[in-house]
Amino acid sequence: MNEAFLEEMAEILEEDIGNITPDYSLSKENFDSLAIVATLALIDDIFEVTVSGKELRKVKDIGSILRLVEKAMGK
């Protein structure tokens, strides 16, 4: 699990770091257009890959974001 990624996700979601786990649930309320764009920037910065905005909009939890990243990295 990438600590830097989770820390930044906590910042984006305005949530306490302790609450950010792979099961952390994402909805239209907490994962809005600003948060999605911020997450794209974060993924580009940390993992140096691009994931599709359309796919990212569909994810339901943090773990799914990491699976999208792994797919983009060809893992």
Partner: peptide, 25 residues
């Protein structure tokens, strides 16, 4: 729309995430 925002076809639509990806690319 799929981002949860109401629009008509006469309105501007921006897929902010894809525009952002395009810019970074």
């Amino acid at each position: 729309c799929d981002d949860g925002i109401k629009r008509s076809p006469e309105n501007l639509y921006m897929d902010g995430a894809e525009i952002f990806n395009f810019t970074l690319d």
